[in-house]
């Protein structure tokens, strides 16, 4: 399969890679660019562990072709903290013990950030429905919801 050359922007920095035409954005991020924060839990859009944003829109990177990244702006978990300052959501997840194994955590953080950008004061139910596509098998979601709400409150106050 003839490879394609893709020029894109990842976490604000220019990035280039070659990929096969059938390669997913997730595989390109992980295997071509070394950004292994997004995880493959299913490869079929059912678990959300590979969540990233493409041009500001929350997506499963396993359901995006790498070739579609041409000219796009991609944001991943690796770009969430600003230098040595964690994002309030990242801090809240640690403070509220909202992770156990942590493999779903990058996807949930990316998704939660996207929610709070759109809705800074969600109800618990809105958080739960927004995150319904992010499976977590360890926590039962309780502490995740609390952590998102805590970060949301902090961000509204800031």
């Amino acid at each position: 399969m003839k490879k394609l050359h893709v020029s894109t922007t990842v976490n604000g920095d220019p990035a280039e890679f070659v990929c096969t035409p059938d390669e997913s954005l997730l595989d390109a991020l992980r295997n071509r660019l070394g950004l292994t924060g997004a995880k493959e839990g299913c490869g079929t859009g059912d678990c959300g562990a590979c969540s990233v944003t493409v041009n500001g829109r929350l997506v499963c990177s396993c359901l995006v072709l790498a070739a579609e990244a041409e000219g796009a702006e991609i944001a991943t978990i690796e770009g969430m903290a600003e230098q040595d300052r964690l994002h309030p959501l990242q801090r809240a997840f640690i403070d509220h013990a909202a992770l156990q194994c942590g493999v779903c955590t990058p996807g949930i953080l990316v998704a939660a950030k996207s929610l709070l950008a759109k809705n800074p004061e969600p109800t618990d139910e809105e958080v739960r429905y927004w995150l319904a596509g992010n499976l977590c098998r360890c926590t039962g979601y309780d502490k995740i919801i609390r952590a998102v709400q805590s970060a949301a409150a902090e961000m509204r106050g800031a």
Partner: peptide, 9 residues
């Protein structure tokens, strides 16, 4: 259809 993520696409 699908999750929030799927809705983005």
């Amino acid at each position: 259809i699908g999750s929030t993520q799927v809705q983005g696409r």
